[in-house]
Nucleic acid binder design. Structure first.
Lengths: 145, 145
DNA sequence: TGTTGTTAGTTACAAAAACAACCGTTAACG
DNA sequence: CGTTAACGGTTGTTTTTGTAACTAACAACA
């Protein structure tokens, strides 16, 4: 039974963050899933390559904090579906550089636009002050150890 | 390659929300996992019962937005481990009321305290204004359709 | 050089989530 | 009543994720 204390689930930041993240991801997920058959890990890899250009799996891992097995599998699927190619680094043959194909860049541009517009639509439900502070606070929380 | 546009992953709210949610859940997850062998779905069910008292699975679903199969399985495991009991509703034998056992209430009180303190610690990394606005903005986003 | 440790990435297996079909019960209504 | 639809919940199967062990390549250094 509830303790006489205002602290409930809706006040628990991890829970609240999760609900907001899930709810706000849904509509975008719909797009990359239906339009390109991608998983979350896959559009993330696609975006990293689209935004920063040629990268190794390792570099994607450092930037995204995704585990290397997730990246490995996402890269496999993206390669199978011809969204990217692998280019072995001759100087260090443990790693390979990843590049988007023409098709990959097209998908990236498309999804980038969708994401941008969707982000703007989300931000529109907030006041400018709310938006600014929300982003700052989220960055702080995401950077915690 | 990056378009000449400030919009990148770190500015995409669903991504940012997800990173913050994941990062901020980690430490708490550690506690309910190590201390009670629970999964995320399980502590959520536990909290619903702890906060609101006797509920049916359906009611938990409406409040939490979790899918009914997740709830069904969480309830199973919580019952096996003697954190809750089921009480069939004689008036409508499709549903059953769920109640925490003594052990369940003890686990709830313990985890509630941990969550409360952890939430306070998270909030401490923010200014009071940031905290207030963050919570308001997250509630807005979580309630979107 | 050769041995030992690290690194980038993959693979194999176990745990968990998603999705659909299902069972027994109740509601709606001819 | 009897039939059909809806509901609460469970079960089975497929995807996806997490974890650990592995391979091949490189680095450090005696």
């Amino acid at each position: 039974m509830s303790q006489n204390d205002a602290f409930d689930l809706q006040n628990f930041l991890p829970y609240l963050l999760n609900q907001a993240a899930e709810e706000s991801s849904l509509a975008f997920q719909q797009v990359y899933r239906d339009r390109y058959g991608m998983l979350r890990t896959e559009w993330r890899v696609l975006f990293h390559l689209g935004l920063y250009g040629r990268l190794t799996a390792k570099e994607i891992g450092m930037r995204s904090k995704m585990h290397k097995t997730k990246i490995s599998r996402a890269v496999q699927r993206l390669e199978e579906r011809r969204f990217l190619t692998r280019d072995p680094d001759e100087a260090d043959r443990r790693q390979e550089y990843l590049d988007l194909t023409v098709q990959g860049r097209a998908a990236y541009r498309d999804l980038h636009g969708v994401a941008h517009r969707y982000d703007a639509a989300l931000a529109d439900t907030l006041t400018p002050e709310e938006e600014r502070i929300l982003r700052a606070a989220l960055r702080k929380l995401a950077r915690m150890a």
